[in-house]
Amino acid sequence: MNKNYLRREGLAGLLGLSAAAALLLASCGDNAEVLPRQLPDYYPLSVGSYRIYDVTDTTWRNNVPTASHFQFREQVLAAPEPDAAGQPVYQVVRSRRATAAEAWRPDSVLTVTVVPLNVTEQFNNRRTVALVLPAVEGKSWSYHAFNSNYNASDGQDSASVVTRFYEQVGKPLSIVRNGKTYDFANTVTTINDLKTGSNNNATKLIVQRTTFAPGVGPVYRVSRSYKNDCSGAEGCRVPFVRYLGQSRNQVLIESGN
């Protein structure tokens, strides 16, 4: 895995280059024709589009889990508006309900910017780099590239550290949820667990991963943050004990326009 990828070819994407940066030279010579590179759309957005996720939240206390279940709907209700650089920014409205029989209630708003070489998400005033295109196995980048003052004291990735990776590029994904199987023939996964050095050690374990399907969008999200029991005289427990922590996983169960 080459963690200097940003220096060689990915930095331009993170800085939001114009569409010209994604052009591919189709031929050589004085009359060379420049054609746009056709990249898979891993985060399609359009007015009226929506995705519904089945969500499981789990809280850990003294290695004992307590789980809750609900649904999220992410929906684009209006046309995108340009940001300061003229790039289209979509507002993705998130609603929540406890069961499919209940009405949706407003929850939060996620803003998503899609440009030729990257996709960024902004939530709670924090902008993160969700994707860097094209997706290549082992490619890496900084998840917090736009957060120069980000505080990494809690073990999260900092703006100056390469902390996001691609794996399972072009692989199928099958998930069973509530007795139903959801199959996605072609996916890519972004991941930062077990590969980010200081983020995972004997005292804590932090996992963040998202799987995308072209033409569909995010289909599976996982986030976990655990602290080990290090109160004993001999130090942290081995094997790892989820003394305190939280986890959430989201499975796409429906999408449309």
Rank of each mutant, 00 (worst) to 15 (best):
P172G: 10
P172K: 12
P172C: 10
P172F: 11
L173I: 09
S174E: 14
S174K: 13
I175F: 06
I175G: 06
I175C: 09
V176T: 15
V176C: 09
R177F: 03
N178K: 08
N178P: 01
N178Y: 10
N178A: 15
K180R: 15
K180W: 01
T181A: 06
Y182P: 05
D183H: 12
D183S: 12
D183Y: 09
F184Q: 00
A185I: 07
N186A: 04
N186T: 08
T187S: 01
V188Y: 03
T189Y: 00
T189S: 06
T189D: 06
I191T: 14
I191C: 09
I191A: 06
N192T: 13
D193C: 11
D193A: 14
L194Y: 10
L194S: 09
K195Y: 02
T196H: 03
T196Q: 01
T196N: 15
N199F: 00
N199M: 14
N199R: 11
N200Y: 03
N200F: 07
N200H: 06
A202S: 08
A202E: 14
T203E: 09
T203L: 06
T203M: 07
T203R: 03
K204E: 08
K204N: 10
L205I: 09
I206V: 09
I206N: 10
V207I: 15
V207A: 09
Q208T: 13
Q208V: 06
Q208M: 09
R209Q: 14
R209E: 13
T210Q: 05
T211N: 05
T211R: 02
T211V: 12
F212R: 00
A213N: 01
P214L: 01
P214R: 05
G215I: 00
G215W: 01
G215V: 06
G217L: 00
P218S: 09
P218C: 00
Y220D: 05
Y220E: 02
R221D: 08
R221I: 04
R221G: 02
V222M: 04
S223V: 07
S223A: 11
S223P: 00
R224C: 10
S225L: 14
S225F: 09
S225W: 11
Y226L: 15
Y226A: 00
K227Q: 15
K227A: 11
N228E: 04
N228L: 02
N228A: 02
D229V: 03
D229G: 06
C230T: 08
C230P: 06
C230L: 08
C230R: 08
S231M: 10
S231T: 14
G232N: 11
A233P: 12
A233L: 15
G235W: 12
G235H: 11
G235F: 12
G235Y: 10
G235V: 10
R237T: 15
R237H: 15
V238H: 13
V238K: 14
P239D: 14
P239S: 11
P239C: 09
P239L: 12
V241H: 14
V241G: 13
R242I: 00
R242W: 04
Y243N: 13
Y243T: 05
Y243P: 07
Y243K: 13
Y243Q: 15
G245C: 01
Q246E: 12
S247W: 02
S247T: 05
R248P: 00
R248I: 01
N249I: 06
N249K: 03
Q250P: 02
Q250G: 04
Q250V: 00
